[in-house]
Simulated assay, not measured.
Amino acid sequence: MPVFALIIIGIAAGFLATRLMKIDTDIVTTIAIGILGALIGGLALRLLIAVTGFMAGLVGAVLGAMALIWLYKHYYRGR
């Protein structure tokens, strides 16, 4: 169940992160960024901070998705 929750949170986080970072992506890319960001950010945040619950996962997911967008904008688009 926790992985399923991260996927659901990731979809919302991908949407929020793409809007905050002002990047235009299609729906599949937005969902992929959100899910990967949720997995990276959610797990990292839970390891670094002993805070549990929905808000910690959402914050971590948004931060993780924003980090992926930053990497994408600086390294992938530059090619």
Results as ranks from 00 to 15, higher is better:
1 M>W: 11
1 M>Q: 06
3 V>K: 02
4 F>G: 12
4 F>V: 15
5 A>L: 14
5 A>C: 10
6 L>F: 09
6 L>V: 04
7 I>A: 13
7 I>P: 05
7 I>C: 13
8 I>G: 09
10 G>S: 04
11 I>K: 10
11 I>V: 15
12 A>V: 15
14 G>K: 08
15 F>R: 03
15 F>V: 12
15 F>M: 09
17 A>W: 11
18 T>W: 05
18 T>Y: 06
19 R>G: 10
19 R>F: 12
20 L>G: 03
20 L>W: 06
20 L>T: 08
21 M>K: 13
21 M>I: 05
22 K>V: 07
24 D>F: 04
24 D>H: 10
24 D>W: 01
26 D>F: 02
26 D>A: 04
28 V>D: 06
28 V>E: 06
30 T>W: 07
30 T>K: 09
30 T>M: 10
31 I>K: 03
33 I>D: 02
33 I>H: 03
34 G>L: 10
34 G>N: 08
34 G>Y: 09
34 G>W: 07
35 I>P: 06
37 G>H: 05
37 G>I: 04
37 G>N: 02
39 L>R: 00
39 L>D: 01
40 I>D: 01
40 I>S: 00
41 G>W: 04
42 G>C: 00
42 G>M: 01
43 L>E: 04
43 L>W: 04
44 A>G: 05
45 L>R: 09
48 L>W: 12
48 L>C: 03
49 I>S: 00
50 A>C: 00
50 A>T: 12
50 A>P: 09
51 V>G: 02
51 V>Y: 03
51 V>A: 13
51 V>M: 11
51 V>R: 08
52 T>R: 11
52 T>A: 12
53 G>H: 09
53 G>Q: 10
54 F>L: 13
54 F>H: 13
54 F>M: 11
56 A>P: 10
56 A>M: 12
57 G>V: 02
57 G>T: 02
58 L>I: 14
59 V>H: 02
60 G>I: 00
61 A>S: 09
61 A>K: 00
62 V>L: 13
64 G>T: 03
65 A>Y: 01
65 A>M: 03
67 A>H: 00
68 L>F: 14
68 L>Q: 00
68 L>N: 04
68 L>C: 08
70 W>N: 11
71 L>A: 15
74 H>Y: 14
74 H>E: 14
74 H>T: 13
75 Y>V: 05
78 G>S: 11
79 R>C: 00
